[in-house]
């Protein structure tokens, strides 16, 4: 599949504000970033697990390493593992993809080593469970056996989402989910305490790092959304005018589909 000219122009239009705000942030300008409640809740959930002296559970979703959701989930896993290492608690991670498994193990190990708690890391805490429903069954079993105090679901999920979230709910864990899978968002909203929706998932690493350059790209994301809103408004207007004025040709529609 190759890009059309319109797609190329749209890529440039959406990328330009992101680059602009990254450069602006690099120059030292302070940028306001809206608070994301679900991400603030990560600290709260780990704090609760520390108080209870129980481990936390993490799932990076069912997608492979080539999907951006999984990369995002692994960065969040790294952050959570660092916090867990800092407070001397375990993070149990189940991985449904064999390519993701060594990367996840390495990220958790490095997080513990970086915090000077290498001895607290156990290879048995990063577990490979292949297959969608074996993964769900195995993960829920682990949640029950380990009596986890907090569950984190970040990445791309399919039908296993509700099985995991209800499993976590049964053990009384505080649950934070983040996905852009539109079919699974309702399940997470009903079963989890906090749900990070759509593009907020991709903002996670930037938001957690609080690094000016990363926050600049977040601001660029918001401007990109404004461009989309503007295009939707123009498109709606043009489609309405086309119907009312009985035009046979809608140049705006033709332009977008070229």
């Amino acid at each position: 599949m190759h890009a059309s000219y319109t797609v190329l122009i749209l890529i440039i239009a959406f990328t330009a504000p992101i680059i602009y705000f990254i450069v602006t942030a690099r120059r030292g300008k302070e940028l306001y970033i809206r608070p994301i409640a679900g991400l603030e809740a990560i600290d709260e959930a780990i704090g609760r697990a520390t108080e209870m002296g129980r481990p936390v559970f993490f799932s990076p979703g069912l997608a492979g390493l080539t999907q951006i959701e999984t990369l995002c989930a692994l960065i969040v896993l790294n952050h959570i593992a660092k916090l867990c290492a800092k407070y001397d608690i375990r993070v149990v991670t189940t991985i449904p993809q064999y390519l993701v498994y060594p990367v996840a193990e390495e990220m958790v190990r490095e997080a513990y080593v970086e915090q000077g708690k290498g001895d607290l890391f156990s290879e048995d805490d990063v577990i490979l469970i292949l297959g969608q429903f074996p993964y769900a069954a195995g993960s829920v079993g682990i949640m029950h056996r380990e009596k986890v105090a907090a569950c984190f679901y970040f990445g791309y999920f399919y039908a296993e989402s509700l099985l995991l979230a209800e499993g976590g709910s049964q053990v009384g864990a505080i649950q934070v989910a983040g996905t852009n899978s539109t079919t699974q968002i309702p399940f997470f909203i009903t079963a989890c305490d906090y749900t990070i929706i759509g593009e907020e998932l991709f903002a996670t690493s930037a938001y957690l790092s609080r690094e000016p350059v990363m926050l600049g790209s977040l601001r660029g994301q918001d401007v990109g959304k404004m461009i989309i809103m503007f295009l939707i408004l123009v498109g709606t207007l043009m489609a309405s005018i086309q119907v009312l004025a009985q035009w046979e040709y809608n140049w705006f529609r033709e332009l977008l589909f070229k």
Partner: peptide, 8 residues
């Protein structure tokens, strides 16, 4: 939103 987020 997801598309913009993926791009960023």
């Amino acid at each position: 939103g997801g598309m913009i987020g993926t791009l960023a």
